[in-house]
Design a protein around this nucleic acid. Structure first.
Lengths: 139, 139
DNA sequence: ATAAATGCAAAGCATTTGCAACCAT
DNA sequence: ATGGTTGCAAATGCTTTGCATTTAT
């Protein structure tokens, strides 16, 4: 029996992977689209998006989410770290010291001027990890 | 002479700040909108967005950008950190070890299950910091 | 043969913006 | 009086999706 959610090897998907592997520039979906289009003029942007999603869900590539499609706002403007629950989406402040020394370390890695950094932890919050353990009890 | 970009104190802006200061939940713009609307039914969503931006530009609040309004993709699916140039938007991989021990630290802070973390550094890349120093030479 | 993947175009949705009226300074 | 700010509505821009068709297995 074939596994459900089997992933086919299509020329569009191969082309996308090849474009991505051929650059160090962490491109946007649209840039990938333009590149793939050079070899495959009829490829559609929808296909690019669908494949980028599939590939990152399968751990073959990594998505770096930027921008602000659903920003959240924090009245505490002091620098601090956050915990994000991947299950329910809640965001909590973390009471831990800022690792200023990391910025100096990064500046030594290259010719960077580092102004600040963002550190956030992902996982399950107290509520959600409790719910999951209850669910597995019910088996 | 009044400073350019002077920020007025309007009742809309005050209401937004008050809503934000009255919660620990890191709300979305729309949640803020719904809350402010309870006291000020004619406030517009545009005003909420404009003020949230102004306030965070002035360092009174903090914006936490989530989602994927312009995602970037990385063929390197191994966990690694990034440097983002705030001036030109370029993204570079950083060659530094993953700080796994931080996740254990966070788990001790509360009842969290931490699966992974995201750490990125912001500043000026080599090119952009060079351009800026050239500009200031021209004064 | 079958279900995954595609191209195309339309829809979704958070966010931004143009503009005339308004109001804090 | 001045120009920052507002409400309203239309627009923007990245991303997603419905559907008929194609294609990898």
């Amino acid at each position: 029996m074939k596994p459900k959610g089997f992933v086919r090897r299509t020329k569009q998907r191969e082309a996308i992977l090849q474009v991505l592997r051929g650059t160090k520039s962490h491109p946007t979906a649209d840039w990938v689209y333009q590149e793939v289009r050079k070899e495959m003029p009829h490829v559609s942007l929808g296909t690019i998006y669908r494949n980028l999603r599939t590939l990152s869900e399968h751990g073959e590539i990594q998505e770096l989410a930027y921008g602000s499609h659903h920003s959240r706002f924090d009245a505490n403007s002091e620098s601090h770290y956050h915990f994000i629950c991947d299950s329910c989406g809640s965001v909590e402040d973390l009471d831990m010291p800022i690792l200023h020394e990391l910025e100096a370390k990064v500046e030594k890695l290259g010719n960077y001027e580092v102004f600040n950094h963002r550190l956030e932890f992902h996982g399950n919050c107290a509520d959600c990890s409790e719910k999951e353990s209850v669910q597995s009890d019910q088996h």
